[in-house]
């Protein structure tokens, strides 16, 4: 059984989650980061930076990559995992299902998000 999101607060929450997701996907560098995490999940910041510069000739600073990762993490697309002294970044594709469910397989029982 599926729980329907009802009420103003839940609608606002769904809108905010969708905003974070689409904002995260709107940037080509962030999409490239997702491509590389699709190739190998569980990368250090160093490896992500190396892939962007060496494989994609993207000359961006480590700080900028960190900020991109923070946006991806806010959208739930990237999760960080501490393991001993290291920090790894994992891909989480679960939020992308919102896109599929909204347009490709919509729930006909009622809208989850109202457009302003």
């Amino acid at each position: 059984m599926r729980v329907r999101l009802i009420g103003k607060y839940m609608l606002a929450y769904a809108v905010a989650v969708a905003d974070d997701l689409f904002k995260a996907l709107a940037d080509p560098t962030r999409r490239t980061i997702l491509d590389e995490l699709t190739d190998t999940s569980g990368q250090t910041l160093f490896e992500i930076c190396a892939r962007l510069s060496m494989k994609h000739q993207l000359g961006i600073s480590r700080q900028a990559v960190s900020q991109h990762l923070a946006v991806l993490e806010a959208a739930g697309l990237v999760e960080t995992r501490r393991e001993g002294r290291y920090k790894f970044h994992d891909l989480n594709t679960a939020p992308l299902r919102q896109i599929a469910e909204r347009w490709l397989a919509p729930d006909r029982s009622g809208p989850e998000e109202s457009s302003p």
């Binding site: 190998t40 990368q43 250090t44 160093f46 490896e47 190396a50 892939r51 060496m54 494989k55 290291y86 790894f88």
Partner: peptide, 15 residues
């Protein structure tokens, strides 16, 4: 290893 072997153009690295 925190980075498995990775081909980056002419260079291959691991950490």
């Amino acid at each position: 290893f925190t980075q498995e072997p990775l081909d980056m153009g002419p260079v291959t690295t691991a950490v």
